[in-house]
Nucleic acid binder design. Sequence first.
RNA 1: GUCUCUGUAGCUCAGUCGGAUAGAGCACAGGUUUCCUAAACCUGGGGCCACAGGUUCGAAUCCUGUCAGGGACACCA
Length: 601
Amino acid sequence: MINSHILARLLGQIFRALEQLEAKGEIPRGLKFTRVTVDPPRDLSHGELATNAAMVLAKEARLKPQELAHKIGQALTALPPESEDVTIQSWSVEGPGFLNFRLAPAVWQAELHRALALESRFGASEIGRGQRVNVEYVSANPTGPLHLAHARGAVVGDALAALLEFTGHKVCREYYINDAGAQVEVLARSLYHRYRQAAGEDIGEVPAGLYPGDYLRPIAADLYAKTGAAWQNRDEAEWLPFFMATAIAAMLNMIKTDLAQLGIKHDVFASEDQLVKAGAVARVLESLTQMGLIYQGHLEAPKAGKAAESHEDWEDRPQTLFRSTEFGDDSDRALLKSNGSYTYFANDIAYHLDKIDRGFTQLINIWGADHGGYVKRMAAAVKALSQGQVTLDVKLCQLVTLLDNGIPVKMSKRAGTFVTLAEVVEQVGAGVVRFIMLTRKNDMALEFDLAKVVEQSRDNPVFYVQYGHARAASVLRMAREGAGDGKPAYDLSPQTLLTTDLSGLTSEEELSLIRLLAFWPRLVEQASEAHEPHRIAFYLGEVAAAFHSLWTKGRENATIRFIQPEDQKGTSARLTLVAATKLTLSVGLRILGVEPIEEMR
RNA sequence: GUCUCUGUAGCUCAGUCGGAUAGAGCACAGGUUUCCUAAACCUGGGGCCACAGGUUCGAAUCCUGUCAGGGACACCA
C-alpha cells in the first residue's frame, strides 16, 4: 500500500476507527463498510476531504448520523498512528452527517514529494491486479484508407489501453481484420480493374459497386510492374484469390501506416479468414449445439417502420439460430445464411471464443455507433461461451463531424473530396487529433474543427493544456539557468527536489493546486474502472486552469510568484510545485498518447 | 413497431459506481501587462438538471413511464 493515494489512506484510517468503535461495542459488529467513501467536497468550506461513513452506517448502527460522525471523529484522533497515516488538522460534523476534514499542510506538501519520487509512474496503480484485458479497436475493413471517424475509435481504444496498463492490467491491443466477406472480393475486383488500367487497357469509368478510390492505382501499378500481363484476360476464378490477398495486404499496410502516424500500434492482428479456415467457427457451433443453444427456427419479419420497407424481399424460412435471448438479447440470431455459409455473427462468435481461450478475463470492443444493435447479441455470446466468467464492454463511439471554421467539410468518395485521417494528421498533428478525440464522452457526437483545433486560445483544450505544460517548463528552465544579472540558478535535480523544504507552500492558491495534483491517482483509478479515458483530458484541463490562474495571480500577489530572488527557500518550494504540475500534465498527456510540449513557438 | 444512446446556463459541454448552495468554456458586461510567456488571468449576470412518478437520511446521478432528437433493426460487414 506504499503508493496508495491520500484519499485511500484516510479511508483506511476511517476503517480502523470504525473497528475501534466495534471493539468498544459502540457500534454493532459485522457492519459492512463497502459504501463508505472519502471524497473531496465541492465546496472547500466543507473541508478538504469528507466521508459519508456516518450516514451510510447510521441506520444499521442505530445511531443518529451526526452522533455516529462524532464518534468516528473522536476515534480517529485517538487512533495509534501508523506510518502511512495522514495528519488530520481538524474535523467537524456538518449537514446530514458528513464528517469533514482539514489535513495538516505538511500532508499536502508531502504529496508533491511523493509525486516527484514516482516520476512517470505518478498515478500508476495495481488495481488491475494483472488482469488480462483485450482491447479491440479500429478493426476497419481493409478496403481503403482510414478516415476521421476511424480515428476516434482508434484514439479512444489506444488511450483506454494505455490507461488500463497504467492501472495494473495486462493489455492486448487488437485489430480484427474482416477479410472473409464479400467486401474483400469487391476490393479484389477493384484492384483487378486498376490492374487492367495499369496494363494499358481502356476501361473507362470505374463500374458501380467497385471501390473508385485512387489509392488502388499505385498498388495496381506496382503489381503490373512485378507480374506484367500475366493476369490479363483470365477468368476471375483464377485471379481472384491472388488479387484478394494482394489487395488486403496492401490495405493493411496502408492502415498500419495511418495508425502509426497517430502513434498507434496493435499487438495482434486477428484475421477472420484464417479463423474460418482453421475451423474455429465450425467448432464453436458444434459446442454451442452441445450446450443446446442452437436450434432451427423462424424469425419474425420486421413489423413496421423503415426496417420493414427495406426488407420487402423478406422470406420466412427456417434458420439456424443462436438462443441469445437466454442471455439478454431481444431476439435469437441467425448463424447461417440462406446459401449455407456462416453469418458475420457466427464468425464473430468464434473470434470472441478465441479471445476467451487466449485467457482474457475482460474484453473491450470499441465500435462505431452504427453497430449499436449488435452489442446485445455479442454480449450474449460471450456470456454463454464463458459461463459468465468473462465480461464484454462495448464502447460505442458516436459520429465525428469534420468542420473547417464552423463550416461542415463535405465528404464524398465519388467526388473525391474524401478527407482521410492521414490528411488531417498531416494538417494538425497527431497530438491534436488524439487530444480532441478525447474531449467528449465516447457516446456523444463530436465536432472536429480543423481551424479551431490549432487555434491558440483558451477555448482550444489541447493548446490550453500544452501551454500550461510549456509554461511550467519555461519557469523551470529559467530557474535552472538563472537569468543573468545576478539571479541565482537553482538546482532542480530530482534528489534536490525530493528534499526541498515545502513548508512555505501555505497560500490557498498553492494548496488548491497541490490538492488537485494529489487527487490525480484517484482520478486515474476512476477513469480506468469506468473505461473512460476522456476523464483524463478533462482533468488535465483543470490542472492547466489552476496553474494558469496561479501564474497570473503572481502578478498581483508577489508572495506567490514562483521565482523570487530575495526568497531562495520559498522559490525552491514553489519550483517543486511547478515541477509536480509539469509532471502530472506530462504523465496525463502521455496516457492519452500526446507528446507534451516543452516550449511554445 | 423494437432496441439503443442522448436531453444540464443563450451556445458547446463536464459532473466522482447517490452527497451538502449543480460547474467550466464560449458569448455578453466590466477589469488586469514597468513584474517568471496577456497565447493568460480576475469579477459579474445568467439554471423548473426535458417532464411525471418512485426508491431513501439525500437523486442531475438509480428504477418506471411520457415527450423530443440521433443511431441501429432477417440473411450484409
